[in-house]
């Protein structure tokens, strides 16, 4: 079973595909999420992930952050909306960016791949555990497991999607705040929902599909989209400057400098030969006449 590939970390482009594969997208409508966490459990169950120990910290939120064994976390954010308490749920998980910072940062060939349908997936067989993807991700999603020394995150249930099923979390969601389909279909539903929200008094509602990472495979409807920070989302996520510079121009400048140096050294050697050190003690071998014929 294999899906057509779009991008492979630290490798050349894969063979261009001819099949037109629609981009798949998960829609998260944060305004209809009731925080039931069925998606969290569905994720753990489908992916056979071991339970993560929890502690009571004064919130209903399962864990403070995603972990290597917990790929889907509903964050419970409290917001004081001029006297009205708003309980803002958000689905913290891999956003499956079109320009994935993790993949761009990854130095291990084939450890991170992007399928033609837009899913960004980690291949733990090829992962070297360097953690560059953790630095490269603008959403702080990939998590390092110190025991296996590999990095893990949401796969958008690529095993299910590749046979035409929906992700486990989407299937479980009892309020239909999670939906799954092509990007166009999801954006259509999301925009209709935003219109509905605006009509009912949420003037700042919008769809969160940040262009800084080329759009995401997980689009989110936010009631307070002018302040994504309220939900713990970055305002304008981009691939970190250090990563894009390191993997972009600096890589080519470095390669060029190295190749140039080698080329100059080679030309110098060819043109002028080996450097003679006048103070060197004469090698007895050099005393033997006709040394070139000794081989």
């Amino acid at each position: 079973m294999s899906l057509e590939l779009l991008r492979i970390s630290a490798s050349g482009s894969p063979a261009p595909g001819v099949r037109s594969v629609p981009a798949v997208t998960k829609l998260v409508d944060t305004t209809t999420c009731i925080g039931c966490k069925a998606c969290e459990v569905a994720c753990q169950e489908w992916n056979d992930l071991p339970p993560e120990p929890t502690t009571q910290t004064g919130t209903y939120q399962t864990l403070p952050d995603l972990t290597a064994n917990f790929w889907n976390l509903i964050t419970f954010n409290e917001h004081d909306d001029s006297g009205t308490l708003r309980w803002l749920m958000r689905k913290d998980q891999c956003m499956h960016c079109s320009e994935p910072g993790c993949l761009i940062a990854c130095p291990a060939p084939g450890a991170i791949v992007q399928y033609a349908n837009g899913i960004v997936d980690f291949q733990q067989d090829h992962c070297i555990g360097c953690g560059y993807c953790v630095t490269g991700c603008p959403f702080d999603v990939p998590k390092f497991n110190p025991r296996t020394r590999r990095v893990y995150k949401c796969t958008l249930c690529v095993d299910r999607v590749s046979v035409g099923l929906q992700p486990a979390c989407v299937k479980a969601c009892p309020t239909s705040c999670l939906q799954f389909g092509t990007k166009e279909a999801m954006l259509e539903i999301a925009n209709r929902r935003v219109e509905q929200l605006k009509a009912s008094g949420f003037a700042r509602a919008a769809v969160y599909d940040p262009p800084g990472v080329g759009g995401t495979g997980v689009v989110t409807v936010l009631a307070f989209a002018d302040q994504p920070e309220l939900y713990g989302l970055p305002r304008d996520p981009t691939v970190p400057m250090a990563v894009s510079f390191w993997k972009g121009p600096l890589k080519w400048i470095g390669n060029l400098a190295m190749l140039g140096g080698l080329a100059v050294a080679a030309i110098h050697y060819v043109r002028f030969g080996r450097k003679e050190d006048p103070d060197q003690i004469p090698n007895p071998k050099d005393q033997i006449p006709n040394s070139t014929t000794r081989l």
């Binding site: 294999s2 899906l3 291949q123 095993d159």
Partner: peptide
Amino acid sequence: LGFDLTAAYAQVREL
């Protein structure tokens, strides 16, 4: 400097 002839491939987990 990066002439890598190993075939890069990705395997989707079995359903």
